[in-house]
Design a binder for these strands. Structure first.
Ligand SMILES: [Zn+2]
Ligand SMILES: [Zn+2]
Ligand SMILES: [Zn+2]
Ligand SMILES: [Zn+2]
Lengths: 152, 152
DNA sequence: ACTCTTATTGAGAATAAGTCTCTTTTGAAG
DNA sequence: CTTCAAAAGAGACTTATTCTCAATAAGAGT
């Protein structure tokens, strides 16, 4: 959790460190996530549509490559929200939160907990790992689904 | 986390509660997971092979359906271990553990932490959810990958 | 034990998220 | 301005998982 906020310049610097390049596409995608309302997650498809409505046509290939790259750099969090595809959100410690997911209807509640990040820090440090992100995912059955008689 | 150990009978009872049936396939699959060494996770394909070597030929369709069913009942945990497929393991509070994953090489370390389950209990109770499982997943870069100069 | 209903299985087709390939474009260093 | 490897775009491809449907069998009732 090195950085809390990326600008085009800091992104550029970090890319150049590894011999990579800052492209307009990467800058635009970073910008989308920076300005996304708290609690919103985007799939690759979501992102593609959102970009389109804002007049940016970035190919799906590039979108997939970019979110994967940014997740591996620690800029984005890759979330598994009980659907059949991944979601991404910006990774900022002061907005750090976790997810409570109903396994039946997939409804997701976000919650904060200060000690989770501490556990992540401690554990990764102990093993010599460089921490990128830690997420607590709770699988449960929501009140509505507990009442329903529908299968599973 | 209602139950800590399932027998064929308790599985049967829980299935019948919902109008479902205990089949030989379900009993065998539960048995596999009950007897799996701690720290071992199986994908659907792994499970299929393992069943085959033990002389049980259960179709992939049934395997996929069964692990999904058992995860939704809280009997199995469904894990996302940074590969392109899910893994399953038995869900037992006294073997409750979490995963530290290298985003570059996918090497995974298991670790225990007592407070995680408490956070999961507290959070789900507060929202009126019925807890099935909670997992802390840490994404990080392992020591070897930090030293490597290979891309991402 | 026999019957009946319907959940479940098995086989294979279908789906779709994500990756790969290859050509063209372009960032950025000198 | 040149150079060249990195990156983008288009679309083919892969493959984990789901779906469909006919055949089977669990379990309740008689
Ligand atoms: Zn979130
Ligand atoms: Zn629900
Ligand atoms: Zn594990
Ligand atoms: Zn590694």
């Amino acid at each position: 959790m090195s950085m809390s906020f990326y600008t085009a310049d800091s992104l550029k610097a970090e890319l150049h460190e590894r011999g990579w390049r800052l492209t307009p596409q990467r800058e635009i995608i970073l910008d989308i996530f920076q300005n996304l309302a708290a609690g919103k997650h985007l799939s690759a498809e979501d992102l593609c549509e959102l970009l389109h409505t804002e007049g940016h046509d970035i190919s799906l290939s590039t979108i997939y490559r970019t979110v994967k790259l940014m997740a591996r750099m620690g800029i984005l969090r890759e979330l598994e929200l009980a659907e059949d595809h991944k979601h991404y959100e910006i990774n900022q410690p002061h907005h750090h939160h976790h997810h409570l997911i109903c396994v039946r209807c997939n409804q997701t509640i976000e919650f904060k907990n200060e000690s989770v990040l501490k556990i992540g820090d401690k554990t990764s440090k102990k093993e010599g790992y460089h921490l990128l992100d830690c997420q607590l995912t709770i699988h449960a059955v929501c009140p509505a689904c507990q009442r329903s008689i529908l299968p599973v």
